[in-house]
């Protein structure tokens, strides 16, 4: 019995505790990301934003959550009921499980696996299923069109994301996320991070994650002028809330991946005493918050792309350029003898 406790039960309990430690703050972050978005957009558009519920509108996300929770779940008559309810769960769960491999600080990672980057890539490529199943199961025109658009869009941009990841891997020499962060450590601090030598790739990656998370200016799947609300038109109550949470958790996740790959993860921008006093997880959070700010900034600034322009950008601009950059990076690394062991 004691053996059973030591080998199975205790580790299982510890893992469950760690999962809760990741998921609960994440859900809180998602809730406040919606407030962050509304407040930042409001300032950019010279408005006040939510300021009624609680001081500075700080309780607004909780009020929104409670409202959604008490609404009625409507399942359309023609819908495929099982798949209709499965779709939001898929979206939500996929946005959570990817966090298992993200290193928050040195050694602060739930599963430090060797193929961390590939795992993230695999999970993010599954995100399309929630949307496409939702569109099909709703048995309704607008959701279906939104789902088809989204499937094509996500598959297109994943290709260039893959090549961007390959360039980072070539430079870092490992698929392990902790290893990638460690490879950005150096005397130059900020200038050692991969976004400096791979700056064009950083830009391509950021634009691609905008498309991958269906955010502006690539939010064609839910273009309200043409498709009502796209794939989530028929959803209400908690099913809608799960889509919403999943989408915002995905934004945070993608910013996290971008931070790990290009912005040095938990590393401080310079080796000065003031900076090194601040714990790594705070730096990680600050970097994610900056990237999320850019997400919102883009939303408040840019008009929506037309669908053919979106496809053109993905296949005719990003794909050839990132392919070229992979070859260039590999060539330079071999020529200068910089290939990591």
């Amino acid at each position: 019995m004691a053996e059973f406790w030591d080998i199975y039960l205790l580790p299982a309990l510890i893992i469950v505790g760690q999962i809760l430690l990741i998921v609960l703050p994440l859900l809180l972050a998602v809730a406040y990301l919606t407030l962050y978005e509304r407040k930042v957009m409001a300032v950019m558009q010279l408005r006040k934003g939510p300021n009624v519920v609680g001081p500075f509108g700080l309780l607004q996300p909780l009020a929104d959550g409670a409202k959604l929770f008490f609404k009625e779940t409507v399942v359309p008559t023609g819908a495929n009921k099982v798949l209709f309810l499965l779709a939001p769960m898929v979206t939500f769960i996929l946005s959570l499980i990817a966090w298992a491999v993200i290193p928050f600080d040195e050694g602060w990672v739930l599963a430090d696996i060797n193929v961390g980057v590939l795992y993230l890539f695999a999970i993010s490529s599954l995100g399309v299923y929630g949307i496409i199943i939702a569109g099909w199961a709703s048995n309704s025109r607008y959701p279906f069109l939104g789902a088809l658009r989204s499937a094509a869009q996500m598959v297109s941009y994943e290709v260039s994301i893959g090549f961007v990841i390959v360039t980072v891997l070539l430079c870092a020499g490992t698929l392990n996320l902790t290893g990638i962060v460690e490879s950005q450590k150096g005397d130059l601090g900020l200038l050692n991070w991969w976004f400096v030598p791979l700056f064009p790739m950083f830009i391509i990656f950021f634009v691609s994650i905008l498309a991958e998370t269906n955010r502006h200016p690539f939010d064609l799947p839910e273009a309200e002028a043409e498709l009502v609300a796209g794939y989530q038109t028929e959803y209400s109550s908690m099913a809608f809330a799960l889509f919403f949470l999943g989408e915002y958790a995905n934004m945070i996740l993608m910013s996290g991946i971008c931070t790990v790959l290009f912005l040095g993860g938990w590393l401080p921008p310079a080796d000065w005493a003031i900076f090194t006093w601040i714990p790594g997880i705070i730096w990680f959070g600050i970097k994610i918050a900056i990237l999320l700010f850019v997400f919102i900034w883009v939303r408040a600034t840019l008009p929506r792309y037309r669908y053919d322009q979106l496809m053109r950008l993905g296949w005719k601009v990003f794909l050839p350029f990132s392919l070229f950059w992979v070859v260039l990076t590999a060539g330079v690394l071999v020529y200068m003898d910089l290939v990591p062991a």
């Binding site: 193929v115 590939l118 890539f121 490529s125 599954l126 399309v128 299923y129 499937a151 598959v155 994943e158």
Partner: peptide, 16 residues
Amino acid sequence: MILVVVYVGAVAVLFL
């Protein structure tokens, strides 16, 4: 991971 990326992430999406 490659099985998931290639087959589930790309091929099966096109099937669907």
